[in-house]
């Protein structure tokens, strides 16, 4: 089954033989090697590593993930608490819901909260869009701060960028942004 039948018949036969050799070495040799290594490791672990204490992986400096009940802007005048964090799934939608609450004492000073953007676990970034900022004037009871996003089916928010315009301790107002790594968002099937 050589390549052709021209004058260079023996040449091509040689090169085809070489090709087969390479293919056998790579195509069968590597698999055999991989399996032998697996076998060796298995036996090794069974026989020799029985007593060995499992090496604990170094605790990575982990970013604490934020879940329901956690507080944002903790060091500022008006901390914001996450009241609701969940994904609602129903027949045709995949909706992320976020609810925030601010302390009642907010009515003494103005406060502005804005959801800037959100990065999903798939890497997609959702821009702010409309109705993603709340302006609370002096003397008003804080409104219900709740936002919803229609997400691509199955995608889960990873990081939320939220900013707030707050009075600082020295009576200046400034805008602070916080990057909120979201963790463990419950996904619930909506029975409606």
């Amino acid at each position: 089954m050589t390549e052709n039948h021209s004058n260079s018949d023996s040449d091509s036969r040689n090169s085809s033989k070489r090709l087969v050799k390479i293919l056998v070495i790579v195509g069968i040799g590597i698999p055999v090697l991989v399996e032998l290594m697996t076998l060796f490791n298995l036996i090794n672990v069974q026989i020799f590593d029985d007593e060995e204490v499992q090496e604990q992986p170094e605790p990575v400096a982990e970013v604490r993930q934020v879940t329901e009940g956690d507080t944002l802007f903790r060091d500022y005048r008006f901390p914001v608490t996450i009241e609701l964090l969940r994904i609602n799934v129903s027949a045709q939608e995949w909706r992320f819901e976020l609810g925030l609450s601010v302390p009642d004492s907010v009515d003494r000073e103005p406060l502005e909260i804005e959801l800037d953007s959100m990065q999903l676990n798939s890497g997609k970034i959702l821009a702010a869009g409309r109705n993603r900022s709340w302006n609370i004037q002096e003397g008003h009871t804080p409104p219900r701060i709740q936002a919803e996003w229609e997400l691509p089916n199955g995608d889960i928010p990873g990081t939320l960028y939220i900013s707030s315009f707050q009075q600082m301790q020295n009576d200046t107002a400034s805008r602070v942004q916080q990057e909120v790594p979201l963790g463990n968002i419950p996904v619930r099937y909506n029975r409606e």
Binding site: M1, E3, S16, L19, V20, L23, V24, V26, G27, I28, I30, P31, V34, E35
Partner: peptide, 17 residues
């Protein structure tokens, strides 16, 4: 035919891994 010959070897290698 050369590509056809490489094909099964490649499959075997890829599948083993």
């Amino acid at each position: 035919k050369t590509l056809a010959l490489i094909q099964p070897y490649a499959w075997f290698l890829g599948m083993t891994l």
